[in-house]
Design a protein around this nucleic acid. Structure first.
Length: 167
DNA sequence: TTTGTGATTGTTTCT
DNA sequence: AGAAACAATCACAAA
């Protein structure tokens, strides 16, 4: 009867795992199970630490413009939405600055936030996970549309009609 | 003035 | 399955 509509898209399997949300705390066991799912999801996604000595944090990107936003059209592939951690960071940053107005920048906040993030419980984190999950749904839709359009007409290419005539 | 760097973890995407 | 890249933000430094 109730057949689970499994998505043939294996690529989106990640999304399926991230479906972990709505922590129904009916029983401790239930929660534990939920948490287990979270861990399982994390294991799949989290695989870094390939080498202790290696730290490929060199993610330098050259952005010609600090912020260019005008046409609602998908300039290119939809950018990745902020993750749960980022949402938490945004909220945590406000409090952190309020308690520590002396703090210079996010470097210190990031550290503090990361540490707290680890001590946070699943229930506390699930809040942000839920937001991130919802955001990802929109992102997924945008991506599908982007791919669809791309496949439909790959002629769509550099249509940079929007030049840097902003300021 | 402008651009890049640094720090955090999570998700995405590719091979 | 695993690895690499990328997501936002703020202060500071260099060119």
């Amino acid at each position: 009867m109730a057949k689970k509509a499994k998505k043939s898209q294996v690529s989106r399997s990640s999304r399926a795992s991230t479906s972990a949300k709505a922590p129904k705390r009916t029983s401790n066991d239930e929660m534990a199970l939920t948490v287990k799912s979270s861990e399982g999801m994390r294991r799949s996604a989290r695989v870094s630490k390939v080498s202790e000595g290696r730290r490929p944090k060199l993610v330098k990107k050259s952005n010609a413009k600090q912020k260019k936003k005008k046409n609602k059209f998908d300039d290119k592939k939809p950018k990745k939405p902020p993750t749960a951690f980022f949402y938490f960071l945004d909220d945590f940053r406000k409090e952190f600055q309020d308690q520590n107005p002396d703090v210079k920048s996010m470097r210190d906040i990031g550290k503090a936030c990361g540490e707290k993030w680890k001590i946070m419980t699943y229930e506390d984190k699930v809040q942000y996970y839920d937001i991130a999950t919802e955001k990802r749904a929109e992102f997924d839709k945008a991506t599908a549309d982007y791919i669809k359009r791309k496949e439909s007409g790959e002629d769509l290419e550099t249509e940079d009609s929007d030049s840097e005539f902003d300021e």
